[in-house]
Design a protein around this nucleic acid. Structure first.
Lengths: 187, 187
DNA sequence: TGGCTCATGTAATCTGTTACATGATTCT
DNA sequence: AGAATCATGTAACAGATTACATGAGCCA
C-alpha cells in the first residue's frame, strides 16, 4: 500500500471481521466506532476503490437480492497490511472538544452561555452512556472469541470516560451556578 | 469575519486574555490547550495575518528588545466576534484515539501488541495527569478572577478523564494478561 | 403517492499538517 | 564553538467533509 491513511486501516479492520458494503461500513462506523473514530461517505467509497485496486480487498457485485450492491472482502494481502499496522506503535491520540474550548474562553461572556454548553454536553453523555453500558452487558458473558473481548474493552473505555464526563458536568455546573447566584445578587 | 475556522477563535480567545506573538501562542496552545486542542505554525501564522487584515486583531512590531517580534492584540471588533461564537451552541466534540482503534481490531494479532499499546497509553497518561493536577492545585485557591475559574474547570476536566484513562488501563491490562497466560498454557 | 431508508459515488472545498527555509540570540 | 531556543513564515500536500447527484425499493 502506497499511502498510510487511517481510513484504509479502519476499512481493513472492519472487513477483517466480515465482508461488507460501503453503506454497511458507514453504519458500522457510526454505531461501533463513533466513540473514538468517524468517517464520511466521501472518504469511504474512494478508499474502498483504491484498496480494491491495490489488491488489499476484493469486490463482489451482489445482484440476486432486491437492491444491487457491492460487497467487499479482505484478501490475505490486506490482512497482512492490517497486521503490520496493528503491530506498529500508536502515532497519535487526539481530542478536539469545542465544549472545553468554549469553557476555556468563556469568561468573555455571561456564565449562562457556558452553563448551556455544559448542559448540552451532559445531555449527550446521558444518551450515549446507557447505550455503551448495554453493549458491555451484552458482551460480558461472552468471552470465547477474542474479537468479543476486544469489543468489550473498547466499550468499557467508553463507559469509563462517559462516567468521567458526567461527574465533571455535575461538579462544574455546581461551581458555575453558585457563581451565577453571586453575580445576580451583586446586580 | 468571512470564514468560520476554529483556529481563528482559538487565536481570538488567547488574545482576549493578553497580547501575544505567534510563537508565544503556539507555546500556549501546546501547554494549556493540548488536552483538548492543537495547532501548528502552518495554521497559526497565516491565520494571524488574515485576522489582522480583517481588523479583528492589530499588530505591533516590537524592536526595542533583543529579538524583533510581532505582537498581536485583539480589537473590540475581534472581541465581539469571539463573544458571538462563544454564545453559539457547540458544533462538534471529537475523539480520535488510534489506541482504541488498534485495540478494537487487535484480535488480528498477538495479545502482546495490544498490551504494548495500552502500556504506552498508560505511560503517557501517567506523565500528563500530575501536570494537570499541579495546575488544579495552583488555581484552586485563586477564585477572584473569572478567567481563573474557567481555567480551573478545564484543568479539572483533564484530571477527570486522565483518571478514567488510568483506571481503564489497569483493568484492561489485567484482562488481557490473564488471557495471555491462558494462551501460553495451551501452547 | 410521498417520504424514508438503502446504496454508490463525485466535485469542490476546507482545514490543517509537514517539511523546509532563514536567521538571530542564548545557553553550556 | 555548537546546540538549543526564539521567531516568522511558505509551499506542497494530505486527508477529510459537505453538498450534490442519482435512483431503487419500502412503508404508511
Amino acid at each position: 500500500m502506497a499511502t498510510d491513511k487511517k481510513i484504509d486501516y479502519v476499512l481493513l479492520g472492519l472487513l477483517s471481521h466480515e465482508p461488507m458494503t460501503g453503506y454497511e461500513i458507514k453504519r458500522r462506523i457510526d454505531v461501533s466506532l463513533k466513540l473514538f473514530w468517524s468517517a464520511s461517505y466521501g472518504s469511504i467509497y474512494p478508499a474502498l476503490n483504491a484498496l480494491e485496486k491495490s489488491g488489499a480487498i476484493v469486490k463482489k457485485e451482489i445482484k440476486d437480492t432486491k437492491r444491487e450492491k457491492i460487497q467487499y472482502s479482505i484478501t490475505e494481502e490486506g490482512r497482512e497490511i492490517l497486521r503490520e499496522w496493528l503491530k506498529k506503535p500508536v502515532v497519535k491520540d487526539e481530542i478536539r472538544f469545542e465544549t472545553i474550548l468554549k469553557l476555556f474562553f468563556g469568561s468573555e461572556v455571561e456564565q449562562q452561555f457556558t452553563l448551556e454548553h455544559i448542559d448540552a454536553f451532559e445531555q449527550k453523555a446521558k444518551e450515549v452512556k446507557p447505550m455503551l453500558q448495554t453493549v458491555v452487558n451484552q458482551l460480558e458473558p461472552i468471552q470465547e472469541e477474542r474479537t468479543h473481548q476486544h469489543y468489550l474493552l473498547a466499550a468499557k473505555f467508553g463507559v469509563k470516560i462517559y462516567d468521567a464526563f458526567l461527574e465533571w458536568c455535575e461538579e462544574s455546573k455546581e461551581v458555575l451556578e453558585k457563581e451565577q447566584k453571586k453575580e445576580d445578587k451583586n446586580r
